[in-house]
Amino acid sequence: MTVSEGMEGRRARNYFDLFRIPTGFDLDVKDLGTRYRTLQQQFHPDRFSDGSDTDRRVAAQMSADINAGFQVLSDPTSRAGFLLQCEGFDLQALEKQALSGEFLMQQMELREQLQSIPPGQSDAYTQLSAESRQLFDSQVGIFRDAYAQGEFDRAGTAWVHLLYLKKLREEVERRKNSQ
């Protein structure tokens, strides 16, 4: 057997550790970008293009981890999800939780509103875009608070709300741009 066989079941990386930043919801996105580029400058497989196969393989995995970490941490919704994962939650199970009737009703109304905007009404899109942004931000506030208090159930629900609102915001932007 070779040493590399011991690699099976390699543990998932803690992206906060990877970028050497404290674990937490609030982070400086610009600083994260600088760290991301610094690490890629050093570990991208192109930096090992005249190196051995091992160098290139390990560098490719490292570089892929850096890419994944940057993607996860730079987006508030996926960052929130990652924090919950670090606390031992199964995200797939969390996503299946029952949401309040109030939240679901609000989502349905917003989607109906979006679908009923007649062509050319860019003001209506701008308004809906601002409204969904506001709802998103308030859930971010709830998540931040709940996470800091260690109320992970409440944080989990806020995260699922964020998933819904993120999709809504993307849909608003898509329709706004393709009108």
Partner: peptide, 19 residues
């Protein structure tokens, strides 16, 4: 291939130097 684990650990160590 047998050196990969060692190489990976060395890379991890060098993150500190980079950052």
């Amino acid at each position: 291939r047998a050196t990969e684990v060692f190489a990976t650990r060395r890379m991890d160590r060098s993150i500190q130097a980079a950052l």
